[in-house]
Design a protein around this nucleic acid. Structure first.
Ligand SMILES: [Mn+2]
Ligand SMILES: [Mn+2]
Ligand SMILES: [Zn+2]
Ligand SMILES: [Zn+2]
Lengths: 138, 138
DNA sequence: GAATCAAATGCAACAATGTTGCATTTAAGA
DNA sequence: TCTTAAATGCAACATTGTTGCATTTGATTC
């Protein structure tokens, strides 16, 4: 398993490598695409509901996972890439939700697209796209 | 007031011009920027909570209002432009949230920016930007 | 203006989501 | 093994969102 990898990641972020945190990371990792909250709750039903919320929050604020999509009160989470830190999530990718298979995926862009708003100071840009994924198209 | 304007809009969408619907449209309109759900509830406290949800849903699905932003379980609603129909929301604009004044606004783009994902069929694109608005920058 | 009728509303009851305080447990370092 | 701050579980609560059903209301026809 990648348990060792996750322990390292947690250590790097000064977070204790607890059973719950490792369990959550394994779960998201095994899910392949971004994992909806309801699935997390099902898979991790051994841990307290409150703890799940707090675990998600902590890992999110330390740049280990990120919220990939939110729709109809269903939130999807994905593991961050190497570039994310406790200071900032560094996401140069967009999020795609397939209306057929419902999968949410992180998609890299060929060229980083620049958003500009005159007189505004831009901090974060989130791009959410929906449509039909490659698998479901055939 | 613009009550007449709203009555026309509702008629065009085959929606009854009820007190609740007019009230909601007046409220959003008076709020200037996109209006958070919690504010809607405060302003429209005379109407049943369930009715507020159903009113929002109906007006949303008929292209009268649209969800402009969602963050931390706070959803912002704005009135649609002319181009929206009951079939499709036609939004060539992005949504901006100011981290200082918390206002959410609809911002038009100079040039419509194209998102492309090879092998994917793109239906909808939502772009949410946060930062500091012009007013709060000075 | 009164009658009609589908659409809209209010109410009750419920389910899911998210939050806070506090006592207990646990992982990491010494 | 000991120590300690961080993490957890539990209870209690607040908010958000949903469904069914009886009643009301707004648009249309007469
Ligand atoms: Mn992502
Ligand atoms: Mn908008
Ligand atoms: Zn798909
Ligand atoms: Zn501002």
């Amino acid at each position: 398993m990648e348990t060792m990898k996750f322990k390292e990641i947690l250590k790097k972020r000064n977070l204790k490598a607890t059973q719950n945190r490792l369990g959550l990371l394994e779960a998201i990792s095994a899910f392949k695409t971004a994992m909806p909250y309801s699935e997390l709750q099902k898979t991790l039903n051994y841990m307290d509901r409150v703890t799940l919320y707090r675990t998600i929050d902590k890992l999110k604020e330390q740049g280990v996972i990120h919220k990939a999509f939110q729709e109809n009160n269903e939130t999807f989470y994905a593991i961050c890439g190497e570039k994310c830190s406790s200071d900032t999530h560094h996401h140069d990718h967009i999020h795609f939700k397939c209306i057929k298979c419902k999968a949410v995926t992180c998609e890299n862009m060929d060229k980083a697209l620049k958003i500009s708003l005159p007189d505004y100071e831009i901090h974060k840009v989130a791009i959410n796209v929906s449509g039909v994924c490659g698998v479901c198209l055939v």
